[in-house]
């Protein structure tokens, strides 16, 4: 009888331990779902990298939203009030809403939740040393401080536009990718502008207003820019190849600051902002683009 009871006790203990072990792998589940995210958004800008989330109490707040291909994940937190808090990871069809989406996993009885994410290495009294492009989730459970770190490998920062700068965008591992979202929509390769076969990828209008997004990354073989307005974002752009400087084609770009003067509209006859092959001159055409004739 005693032997049977002992065996049962051991069996129950091992089963309980298995559950405890599995429950502790919230970090594995979170890691697997988000480490290849190409988009990370949080609206908790006041507390991000700074302080524990303590309000509004007894309310679900979205800690962060992650996008991995066509999948969206929401990390939400019920801020403690009478009871301790709960963190949930849900797969969502759209915006993060605690009452929608499929529950992937959750952590109960937590408090002092903090999140960290920076594009540079950082130090914080609560975090210690933090890696760049790594999402940190800190919380307290069973009076123990816990830390989950997930490198977000596909989040890309800025390029270094400086002498000896690296052409790759900054990231957890610069110049390396682990997952690709195929570009499904491609622009065509441009033909000649004079034949109306050039393919627009970024239109800039008077007053330096973008008329549509800059889609030049969708050009299969690069892109070129024309002379129109004197704008910070450059001029209107077409997909490559460029026939600039040829008869009837856009003038090649020469810049404008070198003239030492300032004007909003660079599209004027004999504009110094563009140049043509020898024997041709610059004119402004009906599209307000500087061309060679």
């Amino acid at each position: 009888m005693n032997k049977i009871l002992s065996l049962l006790f051991l069996f129950l203990l091992s089963f309980q331990m298995t559950v405890a072990k599995e429950a502790s792998s919230f970090s594995d589940v979170l890691f697997n779902r988000i480490y290849l995210a190409s988009k990370f958004v949080t609206e908790l800008t006041d507390s991000l990298n700074h302080s524990a989330i303590v309000k509004p109490p007894n309310t679900w707040v979205t800690l962060a939203r992650f996008e991995v291909g066509d999948k969206k994940y929401c990390l939400t937190y019920k801020v403690p009030y009478d009871n301790l808090g709960t963190i949930e990871l849900r797969q969502s069809g759209g915006a993060c809403d605690h009452f929608n989406g499929v529950l992937i996993h959750k952590l109960t009885d937590v408090q002092d939740v903090m999140i960290f994410f920076k594009e540079v290495e950082n130090r914080h009294i609560a975090l210690g040393s933090g890696d760049a492009f790594t999402f940190y989730l800190l919380y307290e459970k069973d009076k123990q401080k816990m830390k989950i770190a997930v490198p977000l490998l596909e989040i890309k920062g800025a390029r270094e536009f400086k002498r000896y700068g690296n052409v790759a965008r900054s990231s957890f591992l610069r110049g390396a990718s682990f997952r690709k979202d195929p570009r499904t929509i491609f622009k065509d390769i441009s033909g000649k502008y004079v034949d109306e076969k050039s393919v627009l990828c970024h239109k800039v209008s008077k007053g330096c207003v973008d008329t549509g997004p800059n889609e030049c990354d969708k050009c299969p073989n690069g892109w070129y820019e024309v002379v129109d307005y004197n704008c910070k974002q450059g001029g209107t752009k077409f997909c490559a190849p460029s026939y600039c400087g040829d008869k009837g084609e856009p003038a090649c770009l020469r810049g404008f600051e070198f003239t030492g003067t300032d004007r909003d509209d660079l599209c004027i006859a004999d504009s110094p902002a563009g140049y043509c092959r020898p024997g041709l001159k610059t004119y402004c055409d009906e599209n307000k683009i500087l061309v060679c004739l």
Partner: peptide, 27 residues
């Protein structure tokens, strides 16, 4: 109910973490 992961979650996480460590060296 909690949709607790199976051994595959741990296996996936362990192999991914190792692949990231390797990739740093490979890079």
């Amino acid at each position: 109910r909690q949709n607790v992961p199976t051994i595959n979650e741990k296996w996936s996480a362990d192999t991914s973490r190792a692949f990231i460590d390797f990739s740093k060296k490979a890079q």
